[in-house]
Design a protein around this nucleic acid. Structure first.
Lengths: 148, 148
DNA sequence: AAAATAAGTCAATATGACTGACGTAAATTT
DNA sequence: AAATTTACGTCAGTCATATTGACTTATTTT
């Protein structure tokens, strides 16, 4: 049994999320804000429903953090041009800056890890993580990541 | 920038933790209980201090979940034979069963992922996750995982 | 016109984490 | 032998993130 990977996933994820936490704390934000900011930043024009599906949280859980991010000028909302019920989400310059800063931090940790490893490790890591996702969710995730 | 891996880590970890969550809910336990039960199960005779170091939570956060696990008969405490201030933690048969059931579930997901991948992927995944850990923490983690 | 959808909101609650302080027993240091 | 440190437990209060379930409004679809 791959108990080593079970435990390593716990420790790797713990430290992976700790990098942004430090910066987020300065802004009075938490991990929930980070996740929202990240996916809006990478997918401008995302709808609230899409975000709920990605994060797998309830509307009420999202509402609080999203409202904060909007009120404090990190995220913008505008009605969909076709369907005006929709609120399309985009980052402001301020939000984009913060999102990119957090992404750079996490990317650096990953790059350092890969730099210590054999050629082709990025691809193997990608495949491994991809296959850890529920089969019926993989398509959605692949589509989301593609245009990154 | 390896943004794909940043996002895949999020989705992989989300689904990885969702397997145990279902079972834990039946027992009235959460993830915090799982983590405690797991590390005690894999490291019989663990001290409370060790557990605090591994989980990186405060004594007060640990206290509630540990107390529940003890009260409900999943974990046993006994004074250290050398240093009687210590409370060495072990699982009961009940606790061991639950821990193994949860581990099997997570192991299955990992094994299925690796089965879909080239030979040697386990080793690459292990290295990747290991290098994602803070350098100054790697020794402790390696030591912990070794006797698994 | 009726039904469905996207989004927002209300109230109440649970879980897992935190800080800071204090107490006790046992071991170690001075 | 006394003082200090360590391991553990506990009290009180707080915060962040999540939940369920119900209800409203605006808009689009049937």
């Amino acid at each position: 049994m791959p108990i080593d990977l079970i435990e390593l996933l716990f420790f790797a994820y713990r430290d992976f999320t700790s990098d942004p936490d430090t910066i987020l704390a300065e802004f009075g934000f938490g991990r929930a804000h980070h996740r929202v900011l990240h996916f809006v930043s990478r997918n401008p024009g995302l709808r609230v429903t899409d975000l709920l599906g990605i994060l797998r949280i309830t509307k009420q859980s999202l509402a609080r953090v999203l409202k904060q991010l909007i009120d404090e000028g990190y995220i913008l909302q505008e009605p969909g041009p076709v369907d005006r019920r929709e609120r399309l989400l985009t980052t402001t310059a301020l939000g984009q800056d913060l999102a990119e800063r957090l992404t750079r931090l996490q990317a650096r940790r990953i790059q350092r890890a890969l730099a210590a490893m054999p050629e082709g490790s990025h691809e193997i890591a990608r495949q491994f993580l991809y296959h850890m996702i529920d089969p019926d969710q993989r398509g959605d995730v692949a589509r989301l990541i593609e245009h990154s």
